[in-house]
Amino acid sequence: MSGPAAPTLGSQTVISSEIAAIAAGYQETEGEENQPRLDYPPYRSTVLRHPTHVPIEVDPEAIERSAPCFGDRDVDPLDADLTIGHPGEPIGERILVTGRVVDGDGRPVRGQLVEIWQANAAGRYVHRRDQHPAPLDPNFTGAGRCLTDQEGGYRFQTIKPGPYPWRNHHNAWRPAHIHFSVFGTCFTQRLVTQMYFPGDPLFAFDPIYQSVVDQRARDRLVATYDHDLTSHEWAIGYRWDIVLTGSRRTLPESEDAR
């Protein structure tokens, strides 16, 4: 059974051909783009929401070279387990998601805040604007937090989220993903992104994932299955490291001379 398309929604064929044209154009450049394109028309909502000016490069000031401080007062260790806090067990595939947050030189980002949110196993968010006719799970909310440890490590226990439909175009489905919000040691490293699962068949069709036009950069959004992390008769393990750049500072000569 499939619902009727709203008249304004384009087809997957149209979206896919736009994605392919942009990808082909990128292949002809010899550059390496590490970030999504803000102007990415296949994701229709970007059309009026992307800046048209090139961002101005500035040296960060003192406040931008530091970052908000979070501590045990902010985060309860139980916040990292999304499967608890409800009367019963959530439905779905129990998973462990772990990794390290590091800077561009590989140094750990210690004691910093990692926040996640996600759909449930049926692909439904606990959100009034999610009208996907899939069941809510009374035992799953889908939001968690933790602080990174001395190695920059984070770890969550949760349920594997399901893919879900959205209204970018007809028959548009998001690959399963977990939203991540991460702070670095500098405010300039602030990052919000999405972690995907390996081998998702929806990757090719999804303009949000494809807005990162470089395949190697896209690969950095995908967790790896880790059998050593997988827990006997308990949970499947995924590993995903996060690299935050933008902490390097070019010192003015006058400061070098001091």
Partner: peptide, 10 residues
């Protein structure tokens, strides 16, 4: 030097 993890929409 490690390459950045790309951002994605909130």
């Amino acid at each position: 030097t490690l390459l950045a993890t790309p951002g994605q929409t909130v």
